[in-house]
Structures are given as C-alpha cells and as structure tokens.
Design a binder for these strands. Structure first.
Lengths: 187, 187
DNA sequence: GTCTATAGGGCGATAGAC
DNA sequence: GTCTATCGCCCTATAGAC
C-alpha cells in the first residue's frame, strides 16, 4: 500500500474514532507513517483528505447494504439481514457520526457525501418496503418512506444508545424493537 | 446571573453546538464574558465544567419528558405528545450528541450522566408501553423494553438524519414512521 | 515523493497582582 | 472573585532541501 493510500485509510479510521474536529493532521501522519511533506504533497490539507476518506466510507457502506438489499429472500428477510448484520457497534457508524460534526456540516463539500448516503439508503429501503407492500407481504397502510426513515433512524440511534450504555446489546434491542413493530405488520 | 452560572450555561450551549472535543475553555470564556481567572476559580478545568453542564442538560431533558409521560391521556397519546414535541431538530440532542464524543465516553464521570439519562428514558417509556399493553391499548405481543429502545433510538437517529439532510422534515418523517408502526398495533 | 525546519496562532492550565 | 501575564505544547500549514 502506497503512502497516499495509507493516508486515506488512516484518515478513515481516525474520523471514525474521533470525528473531524477531533482528528489532527499530525495524528493522521503518525498513524499512516507518512510525514508532513508526504501528506501535503498528496492533499491540499485536512479537509481534502477528509473528503477522500468520507467518500470512500460512504461508498463502502452503500455497497454492503446494496448486496443485502438485492440478495435472496422476501423483503422482510432482506431487511432483517441488513438490520442484523454484524457491526462494530461501539465504534458507531463511520458516516453517521460525521453528521454530528459541526465542521463537516458547515462545509458543503464534506457534507454532500453524508447527505447522499443517507438519502440513498432511505430511498432504497423505501423501495423495498413498497415492493413488500405490493407483494402483500406488508400492511397496506404502511407508509414506505416514513417507515424507511424510521428504520434508518433506529439504526443510527441504536449506535448512540449502545455507546451511551457501553454495550452493543442496546443496539440489538433497538433493532429487535423496530423489527418487532415491522413484522407484526406482515400479513 | 453570576459568572459561575454564566459559565455553566455557556458550556451547555457550546457542548450542544460543538461537542466536548470541539469546545475550548477560551470559547467558554468568551461566550460567558468571564476571564481565565474567573473560570479557573470556579472550576478546576474544562472537564469539571463540562460535568456540571452535562448534568444540568440531562436533568432538564428528564424533567421535560417526565412532565409529558405523566400528563393526561392514553399511553399512546402521551408517547405521541413526547415524540412530537417541538424540538431544535437541527441542533440535535444536547445529551445524545455527547455519546459520539470520544473524550466524554473515555471519562467515566462525564459518561455517567449520559448513560443514566438514556437508561432512565428507555426504562420510563418501557413502563408506559407495558401499561398500555395491560390496558389493552397495545398489542399483547409487543416487547416493552425493545420497543422503548427502538423509539428512543428513532428519535436520536432522527436528529442525525435531519442534520445530514439539512432539514427538520426528516426528523418528523422518522417519528411518523415509528408512530405508524406503533399505532397500528393499537387494538 | 518525502523529508526537516519553521511559522503564527490556539490549546489547556498556572501564577500572582489587584 | 476577577484580572493579566506567561507557560509548554499542539494545531494546520508553508518552504525548501534532497
């Protein structure tokens, strides 16, 4: 792995662990094993590096989710697979945590990939729910977009509650609760 | 309002806006109108000041929620009042955002009020749901604790999605979705 | 490409005058 | 109680040698 690559990967890790405000160029250099000169040769500065890192993290999450959404099984089964996938719960969502970061939200460029990721995820889940409703798998009264938004929110909030409690079990409880509500709407 | 009070209130605001990592003693002093000496006279340092601020924010949220939980109406009505209460959505949850902060979670003292707040909130909602189930207001198959956790998570995640989208409407959608799932479980 | 040196400013805290 | 002065260190970035 070349230095440029190591810089991006180290930035992804640090953004995940400490957020944008909590991540310094110095820390990135130390973790990546690259020096000042190397970093500023490949990137203009902290924000440009962060942009590359955030974009890559969002793309990763999108690919993983899409693989589950387009996999085998009924709609409810596919959503269950997605919701119950093994996660690094106590580290939180690598993209979601950036939405809390004031300096990320204040910069239109940095914010764009975050906004797009959640827009895509919610929309894709809404499509699935709609498909499940059309197939008679789900309650006809169910609102696909609102339900999709609630499911994504339950995941993101699950991360927060798990971190607050210091236990991944709370995340699992949130998913259980959301799925419990959804699946009693199966027909 | 004396200086000590202003220091605590300014810290609450800054923690809400920028988190612990993003809040400096200097910024607190500027916002409160207190100088270095004043701040370090009343508090040992940044973390002690944050502790006072976090505790107060958690107490506030608890009191507001309890007023709604113990108000008039059926269980579903009271939960709806709580979920739909007017909020500063784009600013996020003053306590929930701290769960993302690495330096808060790393300090047992700072983390305690965050953990306790969410423990209380989830437990209290679970009691309500249990009450509603006993009264025949909700589906007998509903798991009170898991559902309560999912509802709190939907709120916390709603804040995140709204910030990511730059619009409070997304928060409302998440609440709609959660309530939609819950209320079709009414009997 | 990568390194070291350096810069100007902020960080979190302490000291001591008033 | 509150102020100003000062500290040692880190922040983000630039310059220029190799």
């Amino acid at each position: 792995m070349d230095k440029r690559e190591r810089l991006i990967e180290s930035t992804r890790e640090l953004l995940w662990e400490r957020g944008y405000v909590g991540t310094s160029p110095k820390a990135i250099q130390e973790r990546s094993g690259a020096g000042q000169g190397s970093m500023y040769h490949h990137f203009q500065g902290k924000s440009e590096l962060a942009l590359a890192a955030i974009g890559r993290s969002a793309d990763d999450l999108r690919a993983k989710a899409e693989a589950e959404f387009s996999g085998p099984g009924s709609v409810v089964e596919r959503i269950t697979v997605y919701l119950r996938r093994e996660r690094d719960v106590l580290k939180g969502c690598p993209v979601g945590r950036l939405a809390q970061d004031p300096d990320v939200m204040a910069d239109a460029e940095l914010r764009k990939p975050v906004e797009e990721y959640f827009g895509w995820l919610t929309g894709r889940l809404a499509e699935l729910l709609d498909e499940g409703r059309a197939a008679g798998e789900l309650d006809q009264a169910l609102d696909p977009l609102a339900t999709a938004t609630a499911l994504v929110a339950a995941l993101q909030g699950g991360y927060i509650l798990a971190r607050a409690a210091g236990s991944p079990d709370v995340f699992a409880k949130a998913v259980d609760g959301a799925l419990g509500l959804l699946t009693t709407k199966e027909t």
